[in-house]
Nucleic acid binder design. Structure first.
Length: 677
DNA sequence: TGGGGTCCT
DNA sequence: AGGACCC
């Protein structure tokens, strides 16, 4: 995978912004069969997120075993509970049996979790200039921090690595943190002490490897961000640092609660493939249960004898087939994999994609999520008492519809900041001072209703292989009255039921007036169309409108914001070489060394258990387009880096502008002035 | 055995 | 409209 002399960083960029699609294509080609070592990706996973949200609202629960329930299972539980034998996704009854004093909290309403997730996400989005952030579910975030890391690598001072300063913005030299560039923050994946290692620690010959230096920098960035998440927001997290999304995410789970892991290449060894080889294929993100079982069935046809080569039953995740098993299979190849997975409806590049994942290659980009979701759905299940009559169904539909309308208003509108004159505001019939004008950021074009019949009640199917019985759905255009902000949610919802959802329901269940045995109802709006004049919403569903402004915020533009050259031929090589010879690129002292003095959990406490203080703090603080290029073609490391000895954060005042700047930021700061033209 | 999401066909 | 994937 990794070649010793990669030197591929994409800082040299065309002068003009590129069209998003064009840029993506270039990216694909570049990553096609190449290393894909040219990015730096962070993955954060908030530890037992739902439980943490509850704990932050009720700090007294922090020390008690806590489970968060949805219907009859625990969506998650805190680590105290896990100590007592409680597991994620465990039935509530079983959990109580294992831990009688378990505190169980209902988590069926996702609003508090959604709010907390958005607050953390807003912080991360604004934290690193030029980074892209992508949310996965409510509790995971990817960041592409390539630009910031490349920039900071160019600024490393080989004479004072221990007192390095990481710039979070090229625009504001004071924004950042100090760190020790002679070591990684947190854990690294093949552990330096590892028995097999004959390299001296994590060190020696390796630091002339630019990938490794970037990962070292990224580990400190990840450590800093996680510390902020914990200290400022009360959420601990696990982090993974690597060169693409799948590896970052995978390696993040190596040291799970409240820690982080950097996956580093080791020269002359294929440590990344070894890391992957040991995983069950089902554990690789992107390889789901369907693909897993198809592969398993092909490699070891169900009729035949059990695998001989495997000594242990290994009662872990399903199938037991590892990445190594697949790759070592006779004549295994992308083509064979494609044939195995080929079936009607299969994804086109599917085989090749899986093949790449099995090798740790993942060219997918970190996608900046729009402020508006592309879909909003509300659902409820009725396992215990399936719906069979129209009055029941209508009652539930109206509950769901009310909640849907409320969510549309919460997630798809924003405060209207138009400079409306007081008289026109008053004419809307609301008190002047308290008027909450909202306007749509994006509006859905489609309304969809889905149902699902009860698996066991009337029909067949009890198979474990059946992942919840399949849904059926019907959709229609969303009536425009659904967008009327002047009426109460419940009123809009009732009309929605009568005029849209009921007809959809009849289309779903033609010919039967009752007795459907419905175990699930789902109401969904989709196909969001951004409102013209606002650049912040989801992907255009139809021909409606494309979000032009977002298409220009491509990776190229982000990199240009930082734009320090990463040419290994220049002074940076000196930097890294010198770095190597520095006393120790020591192994992490300890697995939990990141937050030294701190005793136990966040302590943010969040004051009283104030119920809701919500509403849109999410919008602000995103990384602005700070378009200025630090051209650091030369001059770098020697000039301006005297033998500064000051232990902690030495500062200087800039003669040009009077800003107080950390000494290690001074060089960058001066270039800032030089740039100004 | 939940209550959500995304993308592709 | 459905299926695959993710949490």
């Amino acid at each position: 995978m990794k070649s010793a002399v990669a030197a591929t960083v994409t800082t040299a960029l065309p002068a003009q912004p590129q069209h998003g699609a064009a840029r993506a294509k270039v990216g694909e080609e570049k990553n096609k069969e190449a290393d894909g070592d040219d990015r730096v990706i962070l993955h954060f996973d908030y530890d037992c997120f739902y439980a943490s949200v509850i704990e932050n609202a009720h700090p007294a629960l922090r020390t008690r075993p806590l489970g968060v329930r949805q219907k009859s299972i625990l969506a998650t539980c805190n680590y105290v509970a896990r100590t007592r034998g409680v597991r994620k996704l465990m039935p509530v009854a079983q959990a109580r049996a294992a831990c009688p004093d378990l505190v169980v909290v209902c988590g069926e309403d996702l609003a508090p979790f959604r709010d907390a997730s958005r607050r953390l996400w807003a912080f991360l989005r604004g934290a690193v200039a030029g980074a892209r952030t992508e949310r996965l579910g409510l509790d995971e975030v990817f960041l592409d921090v390539t630009a910031a890391v490349v920039y900071n690598r160019a600024l490393l001072n080989p004479n004072a690595l221990r007192d390095s300063f990481f710039h979070l913005s090229a625009e504001d030299p004071e924004r950042g943190f100090t760190f020790d560039a002679t070591r990684f923050a947190g854990c690294v994946h093949p552990p330096p002490d590892g028995q097999g290692e004959q390299h001296a620690g994590a060190g020696a010959a390796v630091l002339d490897d630019p990938v490794r230096v970037r990962l070292m920098l990224a580990s400190h960035l990840a450590g800093y961000l996680r510390r902020r998440l914990e200290e400022d927001f009360g959420y601990t997290s696990s982090g993974g640092i690597s060169t693409n999304k799948v590896l970052a995410k995978l390696v993040g789970s190596v040291n799970k609660p409240r820690n982080q892991t950097t996956l580093l290449p080791v020269q002359g060894e294929n440590t990344i493939q070894e890391f992957l080889d040991a995983h069950q294929i089902r554990e690789i993100p992107g390889i789901g249960s369907r693909t897993s079982s198809i592969i398993a069935d092909h490699l070891f046809p169900p009729g035949k004898a059990v695998r001989a080569g495997h000594q242990e039953p290994e009662q872990q995740t399903p199938s037991g087939i590892t990445v190594r098993d697949v790759l070592r299979y006779p004549d295994m190849s992308p083509a064979l994999l494609s044939r195995i997975l080929d079936r009607p409806g299969a994804e086109r590049g599917g085989g090749k994609k899986i093949w790449n994942l099995l090798h740790g290659r993942d060219a997918s980009e970190v996608k900046e999520a729009g402020v508006a979701p592309t879909q909003i759905s509300v659902e409820d299940t009725y396992m215990a008492r399936p719906l069979n009559t129209l009055p029941e169904a209508l009652r539930e539909l109206s509950v769901l519809a009310t909640s849907l309308v409320r969510r549309m208003r919460a997630d798809l509108t924003t405060a209207a900041e138009e400079l409306t004159d007081p008289s026109s505001a008053g004419s809307a019939g609301l008190p002047l001072g308290t008027q909450q004008k909202r306007r749509w950021l994006a509006y859905p074009k489609t309304l969809r209703l889905s149902t699902c019949a009860h698996p066991g009640k009337s029909g067949s199917v009890s198979s474990t292989s059946n992942p919840s019985f399949s849904r059926i759905s019907r959709s229609q255009p969303l009536p425009s009255f659904a967008l009327d902000l002047g009426r109460p949610c419940a009123e809009v919802a009732e009309r929605l039921v009568r005029e849209a959802l009921l007809p959809l329901f009849r289309r779903l269940h033609v010919g039967r007036a009752a007795g459907w045995n419905l175990a699930l109802l789902n109401v969904c709006v989709a196909n969001m169309v951004p409102v013209a004049g606002d650049g912040s919403s989801g992907s255009g569903g139809g021909a409606g409108g494309r979000d032009i402004s977002r298409m220009f915020r491509t990776q190229g533009e982000r990199l240009r914001e930082w734009s320090a050259w990463d040419d290994d031929a220049t002074t940076t090589t000196t930097t890294t070489t010198t770095m190597m010879s520095s006393p120790s690129l020591s192994p992490p002292r300890d697995r939990n060394d990141l937050f030294d003095g701190k005793a136990e959990g966040g302590a943010v406490a969040n004051g009283g258990s104030e119920e809701k203080n919500d509403v849109e703090d999410a919008g602000s603080a995103s990384a602005e387009t700070e378009l200025w290029a630090v051209d650091d073609g030369d001059s770098d490391s020697d000039v301006g880096w005297e033998d500064e000895d000051g232990d902690s954060v030495a500062q200087q005042r800039c003669a040009a502008c009077g800003h107080v700047v950390p000494t290690f930021a001074m060089s960058a700061h001066e270039r800032f002035h030089a740039m100004g033209d």
